[in-house]
Every structure is written in C-alpha cells, then in structure tokens.
Amino acid sequence: MSLLDFARGPALEWSLIIFVIGVVWRLAGTFLFKGQKYLSKPKGTKFVSAGLMAIANKSFPPHELEKRITFQHYTGYLFHIMLFIVVFLFEPHIAFFDWALGISWPGLPTNVITFSSAVTVIILIALGIRRATDPVMKKLTTIDDWISWFLTITPFITGMMAFAHQNIGVRYEDLLALHILNVCLLLIWIPFGKLMHMFLLFPGRYQMGEKFEYRGVKA
C-alpha cells in the first residue's frame, strides 16, 4: 500500500468517522443540555430576534474597541473568506464533497485558488507571529491555539506544494498524500479543539442574544 493509498483509504475513512462522531456528539450534547435555570421572570419577549441580532451585531467589532483590534479583526475576516474560497471553490475539493455528500457546485480557476492559499498562509503566519509576541495574546494562548494554528496552516502549505510539485522536485502523489494526511489530522482535531467554533460560533451567539433578552440586557 502506497502512502497515497493509505491517505485516501484507511486514514481518510477513520478521520471522517472520528470527525462525524465528534461533531455530532458535541452538537447533540450542547443542544440537548439544559442550561442554567432562571428563577427570575423574563424581562424581554423577542428571544428569536434577539438571538439573530446577536449573530449580526457580534460580527462587527464594538465601536469602543474598533481601532485597537483593527488588525486581527480584518485579517481574520480576510483569512476566513480566503479559507472559504480555497476549501469550497477549488474544483478537486468540490469533487471531494460531491463524492462524500453527493452535492457539487461551480468552482474557480486554479490560479485564483493558489493566490487565495498564499494569502491565507501569509495571514496565518502574521497572526501566529502576533500570537507569539504580543504580551496579552501570549497570556491568552494555550496549546489548543497552537495545535489549531498548525493543523490549519499545513494543509494549505502541502496543497500548494502539491500543485507546484514540478518546481520543488517532489512527486505529486507524495505531496497529495501528505496534504490528505494533514487534512485527516485536522478532521480529527476539529471536534475536540477550538476549531469546533466553525459549528458552535453562530448557535453560541444566538444563545447569548437569547439570554441577554431574558435578562433585559441590550447588547
């Protein structure tokens, strides 16, 4: 069995299984868990709109902090947009989703994907340096952040290397295998680390808006 056979076979299969079990487990556990019971009477009534408003409002920096967090806020936005482009609009990735989920959509030219990947890697390096040097960030950073950072940046690097394999003198199938194995590690990590925010971010904000409404807090 070649490295690519292993990556496309048992490695991908088990990492997908762990990913699905982990994500569904955490989502089911979170949504079914009955949170704190309020003993007071609700101060608001528009829970749904409050939840939705919280999702929208929290997507922009608070006015008071806007200037202080410009860098991480807008690089964060750019990073996520580029990540979305690379993950969901690269034709070979669409082919993967088609295989796994039976749905597909139009993609973008490979050169656009390469550019987006390069931007993503540069932003991740910049954010990584900031995390490693900023005194406040250093205090807030845990090993979870570094594992998440590493497992996010490596698939982009190996993906670009696979594309440019002729220039770096490594066989395409080896780099493709490395790329898929990186993704496998990422899939295994997602449910158990901070990257789970991709599933919990918006429900979490919704829940927060709802709670604020209950307590009569305008946020």
């Binding site: 991908l12 299969e13 997908l16 295989w99 898929i180």
Partner: peptide, 20 residues
C-alpha cells in the same frame, strides 16, 4: 477523482452520525 476516498462514504458516515 483523486480527492475522493477509496471507500464508500455514505453508509459509514451515516453510522458515525448515529453513534455521535
């Protein structure tokens, strides 16, 4: 395509979701 796995995903992932 080469980005697809070499196994049948549907049944296994559905079972994984049920376990989850």
């Amino acid at each position: 395509p080469l980005s697809a796995g070499t196994f049948s995903a549907g049944g296994r992932l559905a079972a994984a979701a049920a376990v989850g």
